[in-house]
Amino acid sequence: MSYMYAVARLRAMENRFLDAAFFTRLIECVTLEEALKSLGETVYGQWITGGATPFDKIIDAELIATCKDLEQFVPDKRLLDIYRMPYDFNNVKVILKSAFKAREGGERRHDLLSAMGAIDTETLVLAIEGEEYGFLPYGLSDAIPHAWSVWEQTKSARDAELVIDERLFAAMKKLAAALNIPGLVRWVEHRVDAENIGSALRLARINIDPATARGYFHKGGALSPDDVTRLMSEPFESWGKSLSHTSFGAIFDALQDRSDMQAVLCDVSKELSASLIVVLSSAHYKTEAPENVLLYLLQKDEEAKNLRIALVCVANGLNREFARRLLSHGR
């Protein structure tokens, strides 16, 4: 299979994306049953097996089926790995945190594991709990014992998570470089920056000292951890100016006059997430750019995220206007 074929097929598949009008209708539904009925008329309908199917399972089933579909015709499967890798690392964090809790007499939370990862969750649980990490990919065989030793020294699950996150970004960058697709390397760097800026904003909001926050920032982005630390020591209003040489500047410029910090945090998170799609969007105009595979998966991911927001809002009778503001439209 060639990328010409794959990209053309993805273009045709894009017609099945749920549009903004559908989300407006979905949010307006009074009951979850009504919302699921609307969802049943879309591509997600095939996963609704009965009235009691949890919507999370429906969304996950569609995402997994999409990955399986793409596996059949994408020339280089590693493009899918770069999308699924964060899910694998997230699963590792869930298992490790469960293990830390178990050591302290707490309960395991394996129900939080995602089936979206490339590594089977059961295999991952057995490997981590049985301390047989040798066969695990992406450098996890080194990162997991390191995370364990960090936890044993500090008893901080957050510090252990940082070790895993650091390895995730290093592995993503290594894989992107191995794929030799320039747009993909830039995307990974952008993702690291987006993660660091998001963390900086959250930490600034709870008045964490920049020097303490330095340890929460990851290497591998276009902005170094030191750049992000310096950013934290500046007032929020000047972040747009300080980041004006990057694509993040515009996001903060647009939010400069907002006084409600909670709303700003919410909007920034949404914009940072959307920027991960925007940064790849130039691939849309290239008929055989491999980046289109990742772009499609990210758009599907965004659709799934929007669905979760809308359905949680309907199920819990939350404020519709608030839910509408949370919806992201990166594509």
Binding site: S2, M4, Y5, A6, V7, A8, R9, L10, R11, A12, M13, N15, F73, T287
Partner: peptide
């Protein structure tokens, strides 16, 4: 051949085209 690859990709999803 180039156009055919693209056409095959589209027709896999939408044979009506």
């Amino acid at each position: 051949g180039i156009a055919g690859e693209s056409a095959a990709g589209v027709m896999t999803e939408d044979p009506d085209k």
